[in-house]
Design a protein around this nucleic acid. Structure first.
Lengths: 130, 130
DNA sequence: TTACATGATGTTATATTATAACAATTAACA
DNA sequence: TGTTAATTGTTATAATATAACATCATGTAA
């Protein structure tokens, strides 16, 4: 079997839903929304989420246990993500800053560890909430 | 009541335990370990953890739901943390890199958001696991 | 075309992580 | 001493995530 190129039914349903939202969605809120489409169990949601994260279609916001679509169509940076999170309104935005990405991509620690991805979350107050 | 300067009993017990470990501990493993000291309920652990995170004595490793002591005695960077995580052996190390910290501290996004903290986790393979 | 391997699905049950709600106690201090 | 805030203790429950097992679908190769 070749590496899968098209998404499966459940994966499509769940990606569609996440892509329609500009804010991160939680697994059980996704489950609630897709029940009408025949997805009934948490595991079905988590399996699709895992796959979508793996192929870079979505990202997990670790500090919020929530999932957001990757807006970067190239998706080469699937495993190197930067987000800003407003601690008041919980607005989450993916940040694409070339200089910052370069800096992080090239970062070498003193222990000679080989990195293949990173996750950076900035916290603060957005313009509206200041 | 003044801003608390000394830790409470439960906070001390739990901080002691976390400081004795050089690796992150999970809340329920902490609970298991402190039962002999009379801490019986998850909430007692989580309350202490919340406080210790707040005052910068420990950090939460978001991607692992685990807590590690802050080795930086000055603890001014309590809310600006960088960790490296080995995806094979799960070894976690706090990174102190002046240049990287500066870069992150001075980062301004295009939306004019005001950041007061960040959390960065690098993933990869440590020397032993390569 | 059959057999095999892989990935996806569906289902039930359960594990893991975290908080709500309430009562009681302790410590600082006006 | 009364007031306030932090902390504690307790029971119950919410929220997040995975284990284990059976079945189905699809691509590849004998």
């Amino acid at each position: 079997m070749q590496k899968q190129e098209t998404l499966s039914k459940n994966q499509k349903i769940i990606l569609d839903l996440i892509e329609k939202s500009d804010q991160p969605l939680k697994a059980y809120s996704i489950l609630f929304d897709v029940k009408k489409k025949g997805i009934n169990a948490p595991l079905q949601v988590y399996r699709a989420l895992d796959k979508l994260v793996e192929i870079g279609k979505i990202h997990k916001i670790e500090s919020r246990n929530a999932f957001i679509a990757c807006k970067n169509s190239k998706c080469q940076i699937a495993k190197a993500t930067v987000f800003s999170i407003c601690e008041s309104c919980e607005d989450v935005t993916e940040i694409h800053d070339h200089k910052l990405s370069e800096h992080l991509r090239n970062f070498k620690d003193s222990k000679g560890m080989k990195y293949n991805k990173y996750n950076l979350e900035f916290f603060g107050l957005c313009k509206k909430c200041i």
